[in-house]
């Protein structure tokens, strides 16, 4: 029932999207020879935060864009969306309700 604001298409129903995973993991550079820990971390380790979480969704049934989504894992509120490499600046309180 979420509405995800695709940076290319605008607000769309989450049924059009596929959840990909944690967006905070950076792929180690290919020339980081034998940087085992970094690779282990990138491939296997994921946090399960309570609260704000940066994650990737793909607009699979739309423009196929990968979208970075900042979502509150407690309330499911989506605080911000952007392109995968975009830095999303967040209000400390997160989402302000109107009215």
């Amino acid at each position: 029932m979420l509405i995800i604001n695709c940076p290319l298409c605008g607000p769309r129903d989450h049924a059009e999207f596929t959840y990909i995973g944690d967006a905070t993991k950076n792929r180690p550079k290919s020339d980081d020879i034998s940087n085992d820990d970094a690779w282990y971390d990138y491939v296997y380790l994921r946090d399960n935060p309570k609260g704000l979480h940066e994650e990737l969704w793909q607009h699979s049934f739309g423009c196929r864009c990968f979208v970075k989504v900042v979502r509150n894992t407690v309330t499911h509120q989506i605080i911000a969306t952007g392109m995968p490499k975009e830095d999303l600046i967040l209000d400390e309180k997160g989402f302000e309700r109107s009215v």
Binding site: I20, R27, Q58, S60, C65, F66, P84
Partner: peptide
């Protein structure tokens, strides 16, 4: 397809 799109859009834009 999704696998390749991921690398093209997120890792190697």
């Amino acid at each position: 397809l999704s696998h390749m799109e991921y690398y093209l859009q997120v890792q190697w834009p």
